[in-house]
Simulated scan of single mutants.
Amino acid sequence: MKNFFVPYYNTDDCYPHERIDPNRAIPEVLYQNGTARPLEAPITPTTQPQAVTLESTEYLNGYLRTKIGEKVRVEFLIGTGTLVDKFGELLSVGANYITIRQAETGNVVACDFFTIKFISFYY
């Protein structure tokens, strides 16, 4: 028995029945739930909130970037119950790490971002 491919030529299901005219004026009112209400301000960069990205202060990376140069104490959870802390100046913040200049030795240490549990800032 042979299998035959039968193409589907009925395009009424995937194309609108009414053609959109690009030269048509934009309506002054928007109909919602059967009632007319005026259109709100157009969507522009100044009327819409900023997109939330990894550089935004809503994420820890973005917040820590605002604290570069501050004295910090960062506590890390190692394993299931061991807390290790590092104290020094916050130098940089990457996607998955931070760097701290340690106060005791002056050495720069890179720290894993995903084991950070607490960060204290000292002014």
Rank of each mutant, 00 (worst) to 15 (best):
A41R: 12
I43L: 10
A51H: 03
L54I: 06
P38A: 15
E40P: 01
I26P: 01
A36I: 05
P49Q: 05
A51E: 07
A41V: 12
R24F: 05
E55Y: 05
T47C: 01
T44L: 05
A25T: 07
A41Y: 06
I26K: 06
V52I: 14
T53M: 00
A25H: 08
T47S: 11
L54W: 00
Q50P: 01
R24W: 06
L39G: 04
T53G: 04
Q50C: 01
T44F: 00
A36S: 15
P42R: 14
A41W: 08
Q48E: 08
T44W: 00
E28V: 09
I43P: 00
P45I: 00
Q50V: 08
V52Q: 01
V29L: 13
P27Y: 03
T46M: 04
T47G: 02
A36Q: 14
E28M: 09
R37M: 13
E28W: 09
L54G: 10
G34P: 00
P49K: 04
Q48N: 05
L30I: 08
L39P: 00
I43S: 10
G34M: 01
T44G: 00
E55P: 00
L30P: 01
Q48K: 09
T44R: 02
R24V: 05
T46E: 11
P27E: 04
Q48F: 04
P49R: 06
A25D: 12
T53E: 02
A36G: 13
N33I: 07
Y31T: 10
G34T: 03
A51Y: 06
N33T: 06
E40V: 08
P38R: 12
E28T: 15
L30D: 15
L54K: 07
R24G: 03
P27S: 09
N33C: 08
P27D: 10
L54A: 08
Q50S: 08
P27W: 04
A25Y: 07
G34K: 02
L54R: 10
P38C: 08
I43T: 07
A36F: 07
P42K: 15
A36E: 15
T44M: 00
P45Y: 01
P42Q: 13
R24H: 11
